[in-house]
Amino acid sequence: MLEFNLPDMSCGHCASTVAKTAKLVDPNSKVDVNINTKMVKIESTEDRSDFVEALTEAGYPPAL
């Protein structure tokens, strides 16, 4: 399970974009987005760095 803190995620549209971005990296992933905590949990066999790169390109860089 990969977890990311996305400080720039603030609304339902953001959450939808984050979920779609994760599915582009791994169409078989399970994605759980929580807008209130600004956290996304992704269950995937893909490498964490692939998700970091995709989320950053989508405008939602994970906090370090």
Rank of each mutant, 00 (worst) to 15 (best):
M1W: 03
L2K: 13
L2G: 09
L2F: 15
L2I: 12
E3Q: 14
N5T: 04
N5Q: 06
N5K: 07
L6E: 02
L6T: 01
P7W: 06
P7K: 09
P7L: 07
D8Q: 12
D8M: 10
M9W: 01
S10C: 00
S10T: 09
S10Y: 00
C11H: 00
C11Q: 03
G12W: 00
G12P: 00
G12N: 09
H13S: 09
C14E: 00
A15C: 03
A15W: 02
A15P: 01
S16H: 05
S16Y: 05
T17F: 01
T17K: 03
T17C: 08
T17W: 01
A19F: 00
K20A: 15
K20I: 03
T21E: 02
T21L: 04
A22E: 01
K23L: 14
K23I: 04
K23M: 09
L24S: 14
D26R: 06
N28T: 13
N28M: 06
N28W: 00
N28C: 02
S29V: 03
S29W: 12
K30G: 07
V31D: 01
D32Q: 12
D32S: 14
D32M: 09
D32I: 07
V33G: 05
V33A: 13
N34G: 09
I35D: 05
N36Y: 00
N36H: 08
N36C: 06
N36R: 10
T37W: 08
K38S: 07
K38H: 10
K38D: 07
K38T: 05
V40F: 15
K41R: 14
I42W: 15
I42N: 09
I42T: 05
I42K: 14
E43K: 14
E43T: 14
E43V: 09
E43S: 15
S44H: 13
D47M: 07
D47I: 03
D47Q: 12
R48K: 15
R48M: 13
S49M: 11
S49H: 12
D50H: 08
E53A: 14
E53F: 04
A54R: 13
A54P: 11
L55C: 07
T56Q: 08
T56N: 07
T56M: 07
T56Y: 03
E57A: 15
E57T: 13
A58V: 11
A58F: 08
G59L: 10
Y60N: 01
Y60L: 13
Y60P: 01
Y60M: 13
P62F: 02
P62R: 02
P62V: 03
P62A: 04
L64G: 13
L64M: 10
L64F: 12
